[in-house]
Design a protein around this nucleic acid. Structure first.
Lengths: 323, 323
DNA sequence: CTGAAAGCGCTAACAT
DNA sequence: ATGTTAGCGCTTTCAG
């Protein structure tokens, strides 16, 4: 059976209190007592029960990671980063796919709180933003902006979008389409605004279409776009997956990339390099963002002071073969 | 502060035992008592503390998912399936990337056991297989074969590989290369054996090269292969990612796909459809396998009898544009 | 320096 | 039908 602190105490001929003390390196312990306990622990292959600890401390050494869908290729790298740093601090991560549904989000929130998770990283937010403030538990917003009271880690989305658009114009595009991401999702909105700003400033023609982060929808929308605007010669997609969808549409339409139409994506996921031609994109520091967010969360959990609440990571244009 | 069962009991003027009874629908409760308790629960917005429950029951309603690397595109869909069914049964999943390192695997195993996880799904196994039997906790092997005592869910890897090879031969390939997956990993070995069996039987020329599930390595190995065997006109890759690597190599070598060289992958991940030309592959029922594995795990946890220990899912050849 | 004992929140005998 | 109480395994006063 599982060996408990009591077993160790008996074996070492001390009280459980003493065992607890050596376990946690707290309070005075005589050299001899310590040695006896250490020996007992080893002999019995004892490992403290973390549930019991949790009950007392009201902490669990677990953090929750809420995201829309791990199946979206943007998230695995993020999740990996979170898990890596969590692990390095002795935290364990439970992961939750919300599909952007408020109900699922709520359910998870409750479930995780009951499990005393020490904090959560949110890469999705569909509840009223004030709701989050009510839950008094450390939170970090990642690739989302929820409220000023929640530490936030995002990319320079607007700047990146501006750069992408500029690049298309430099490559001589005269009529650019923007495949916009979900309306209301801040990073997608920022990219949209960046696009509009440059397009207006440079005075070129443009259209936009709403998409989700789905390849099929992107393909469909692109097809539609070309039906109404055959003059399109450049596409700025709100994500690399969307860009892949656009490329499929172009293939169907018998348009050459980059000769007839140039494309820039956004994200910098591995997919981009696998496409042929490989995708020009705005690279985000996905892994680093995940690390930073987790670090911020753990800092909160461990009551360390958080200097800055808002962290923007630079993006960079990676020119490959679609432009 | 958090409201406890005691608060509810006081508020409803009953004992904690009564509250516990209505909570768990166990034992006799009078209609009036029940109503009072229900009302108290609602008024106080009480939610039972699952850590306390865990401590008593030695269960946690959590399951662990050990996998090599969520960043490998084979795993997100699997993880999603696991999470979906876990969630539907009220379980929460903690996920762990082991990078195929035995040390990490051990660390997680210990950590999860201490948290009383109710069971684990293993899509990675690097410890001595007898080790797993020692840990007396429900286990399921997914896309891996560990021991007969552990319920197992895999694809018909050998059969799929045979079909792939046969397809290449039917498409007139005379000299086929197999990019083999990690030696010692059962599904990869099975695919290798399936390939060899058909190649021998049909008496065609072939070579093999060892790869991991990494795109870069696959590209490199393919380059090497063509240096020593320029007559290669067909490639059977052990995974779609590997196939993508091969395609990159071919692009560099100025070989046309499928005219000069035909390629078949294995897995059927979304990547395959995004490639140009899109990838012919052996499709696995990834999501279904994840579902089945989770179902098997939960059955064990809930002490339901498990009929079959070994589950093989059929694969299917999906012919796209690389052959 | 060490031990006894209370308590974290909940469940399940055992009484009543 | 309901309450009392003893744990689950651990931590932390509080005495000594």
């Amino acid at each position: 059976m599982m060996t408990t602190i009591k077993d160790v105490a008996n074996y070492a001929n001390v009280s459980v209190a003493t065992v607890s003390r050596v376990l946690n390196n707290k309070g005075y312990i005589s050299k001899t007592a310590e040695e006896a306990v250490l020996k007992a622990i080893k002999e019995l292959d004892y490992r403290p029960n973390s549930v019991a600890r949790s009950l007392y401390h009201k902490t669990s050494n677990m953090i929750g990671l809420l995201m829309p869908d791990i199946t979206n290729p943007f998230f695995p790298e993020l999740a990996r980063a979170v898990e890596d740093v969590a692990m390095s601090y002795g935290y364990t991560v439970v992961f939750c796919n919300t599909d952007e549904e408020m109900e699922k989000e709520k359910t998870y929130f409750e479930a995780l709180k009951q499990k005393y998770v020490d904090g959560m990283i949110l890469t999705t937010s569909n509840m009223d933003s004030t709701k989050y403030d009510e839950f008094d538990i450390p939170l970090v917003a990642l690739d989302r902006i929820i409220s000023e009271r929640i530490p936030t880690v995002v990319s320079e989305n607007k700047k990146g979008a501006m750069e992408a658009t500029q690049h298309l114009i430099e490559r001589d595009c005269k009529y650019i389409a923007h495949l916009r991401g979900p309306v209301g999702v801040r990073p997608a909105d920022d990219r949209y605004n960046g696009f509009i700003e440059i397009a207006e400033k440079e005075g070129i023609g443009y259209v936009t279409a709403d998409t989700q982060f789905s390849i099929e929808l992107a393909e469909e929308k692109t097809l539609e776009l070309f039906q109404s605007h055959p003059e399109i010669d450049g596409i700025f997609a709100s994500s690399d997956v969307t860009a892949a969808g656009a490329m499929h549409a172009l293939f169907k339409l018998n348009k050459q990339v980059p000769q007839d139409v140039k494309i820039v994506g956004f994200d910098g996921i591995p997919l981009g390099t696998m496409l042929v031609p490989s995708l020009t994109t705005i690279q985000q520091s996905i892994y680093k963002m995940g690390e930073k967010a987790t670090q911020l969360l753990i800092d909160q959990i461990e009551q360390k002071a958080i200097d800055t609440y808002y962290h923007e990571f630079p993006t960079s244009l990676v020119v490959r073969h679609t432009t």
